[in-house]
Design a binder for these strands. Structure first.
Lengths: 237, 237
DNA sequence: CGCAAACTTGATGTTGCTCAAGCTAGGTGG
DNA sequence: CCACCTAGCTTGAGCAACATCAAGTTTGCG
């Protein structure tokens, strides 16, 4: 059943090199990787793994969105990233997972068992280098997020978040879909649900965005949104 | 002049595999890497590179400490990491640097020119894999820092920071050297200088630490410090 | 010894959190 | 098909933690 799903996905996606993990690799390399690929589905809220679980796989998101998070003993949560189609996770953990992963909405993903995966490192030329590029990119994103968490105010945080979402979905112009809840956004930005909600309202009143529904934002004044994101706007707005 | 320095460092450090970048690699691989190594020194406060500079090198710290940071247009600063002996930097940037680097104190480091370095990727088996491990580890540290910045209070932040410093210098027991200024610590933890100072004082009064000098901390009650770091202590202390 | 930079301490202010209601939308069962 | 019900979102009032502003104090260096 999984094998069938793999074939059908591969078929509809042109060829095996369409999987993000194979980007830039040869057709032969891609087929070696395809040999250990195991497609998988998740329902909203479903858990993929938790912190301290044994790390036995690497994953690639095909559709939908995942949230990665860490918890403090008293339950405070920090979301360390949202992963969409084409993004890879599970590289970092050497034996033990250091964060938990849940589905935000319906998700399809591919699992690559760790043992087979690391064997390919020595056999598939360019794979380690490709994954180094992936990890480097995640590191850069994490550093941007540190700047946001440590030094930006609530308006700057929310504005930056919307721009980030927009960059991910480089779809049509001003329409941004927000699949995650206000609570998720709060835990990603180091705020509370109430502050996130108030900030959305402020941006709406200021004419910077429109909110047709809670999960659908329309960017009305992109320039001003960018000013907000970089703190070049007065804090009283 | 640089070549002389390289030989003397290598000689005092037993052999070329002593450089962190070569950890786990063969002697042959290490000597290939040594061939492109260029030692270099920095004075306190000196700039190695700035954000948006062209990224033409990878570096390895030999002695001393570096601070990596990002700035907002209005001058707010977030330090995204302190790097000590054996740590590697410059992998992440694809062409353009996304953060700036300065020396905290006297630093000696090794430069590996980018062109030669990436040629070695295909020639030195295991190098890409070694660097993937390095990047993964930095990513994990960045994620811990996101939790700290987004969800911890000032006492938890400072306590976590001290424990981090202690882990880095797995030297003797309770003595922690703090080479960076209060301002650096503040910009690393997302606080102000004053709050950092007050929190040190609170820990001192609480008997958790002693402060022989501003740059030298003695851990008096490690268990309580760990409780602080994880928010299991009441906030009124 | 004197100076400047860094650190500490105190008084006041502001941002975002907490607590507490309403409100809205989507899903379920009558 | 509609009414209810619940989860998620929004709004409001008061408060606490941390920032800001302003002196002192210590330290290290010339």
């Amino acid at each position: 059943m999984y094998a069938v799903a793999a074939i059908s996905i591969a078929a509809t996606k042109v060829d095996t090199t369409a999987f993000a993990i194979c980007r830039g690799l040869s057709r032969n390399a891609a087929s070696r990787i395809a040999a250990i690929r195991m497609p998988q589905k998740m329902k909203p809220g479903e858990n993929l793994f938790s912190e301290n679980d044994e790390a036995d796989s690497v994953y690639e998101v095909v559709t939908g969105m995942l949230r990665l998070y860490k918890l403090l003993p008293d339950g405070r949560r920090q979301i360390i990233g949202f992963l969409g189609p084409g993004q890879i996770l599970g590289l970092a953990s050497k034996g033990i997972r250091t964060y938990a992963v849940e589905a935000v909405n319906d998700v399809t993903l591919c699992r690559y068992p760790r043992t087979g995966f690391f064997r390919l490192f020595d056999e598939v030329p360019g794979l380690a280098r490709r994954l180094l590029a992936v990890a480097s990119n995640e590191l850069r994103a994490a550093q941007d997020q540190m700047l946001l968490l440590g030094r930006k105010g609530s308006a700057e945080k929310v504005a930056s978040f919307l721009l980030l979402l927009m960059a991910d979905q480089q779809s049509a112009g001003d329409e941004v879909s927000v699949p995650m809840s206000r609570g998720d956004i709060a835990d990603y930005l180091g705020l509370t649900v109430e502050t996130v909600s108030r900030t959305f309202t402020k941006l709406k009143i200021g004419g910077v965005i429109a909110l047709p529904t809670a999960n659908h934002v329309e960017i009305r004044d992109r320039e001003q949104l960018e000013d907000f994101a970089n703190g070049q706007c007065e804090p009283e707005l």
